[in-house]
Amino acid sequence: MLQTVLSGLESGSWFALLGLAIVVVMKAADVPNFAMAEIGLVATYVGTVLNAAGISFWPAVVVTLVIGTLLAIVIDLALMRKLAKHGHFPLLLMTIGLSLALNALIGLIWGHEPRSFTAPWSGNHLDVGGLDVSWAQVVTIVVGALGAIGITAFFRSPMGAQMRAVAENRETARLIGVNAGRLSAIAWGLGGLIASTAVMLQAQSTLVSTHSAASLIIYGFVAATMGGFVSLFGTFAGGLALGIIQQVVGTYISTSAQFAVALLAVFLVLMLRPGGFTKGMRLRDV
């Protein structure tokens, strides 16, 4: 059971981070980004290629993160910005179109075989009181938690406060001089950074491919929904809970039911707490 919970926390950390990436973009740029997983995947694939070409681990990580960040900013500036005034629907479809195109592009350039991002600690395990803990799991869970803390801290900074102001009322924020366009680019960049981190964490522990992006983005959105698309804490906790549910169902019921049960759990949460399960505590959570 503990072993299952541990795996759940690991995959939950990926979901939580991706959910956070989605929420960050949602808050500051008001875009539901379905291409987030693919942005992270593109960056991670570049990283694995560099890694395979003999570039050492840490420089490859840095390049991966930079590419994820820049790609997201370019997407915001080139595609999203001028669509904003037409509402959510075109934006939503644009990110869907983007995710299709990016996914196929990855397949075209690098193929559809699963890949991994080999880290110096890959394959090493710890024995914690009979519990088999891999270093990859430790790294994922720790980085996930640190990432969540870092994003929370960012949203408490003056720039983060501006983003929250934009999230609460975009027009008023602009009236008092907040540069919403610049913030939107920064939020996209931050989202790309977090998404690349999430996919990279997944890749250093298991395999990623063009097929893994689809379920990752759904789980990410589910985590974001649990936080009401607003609360960072709710999203993080939601992602972890989702990971645990998914692993428990996979171990004790069936792996084919994982998806449906996780989604039904979300449906229940939404029914009981429309607006996310941390609604009402938003102010302290952000």
Partner: peptide, 20 residues
């Protein structure tokens, strides 16, 4: 593979040109 790219790109262009 080009099919999905073409599909995504056509969709993106359609939205960018005619958001309505």
């Amino acid at each position: 593979d080009l099919q999905a790219i073409a599909y995504g790109v056509v969709l993106m262009v359609a939205i960018a040109v005619l958001p309505g």
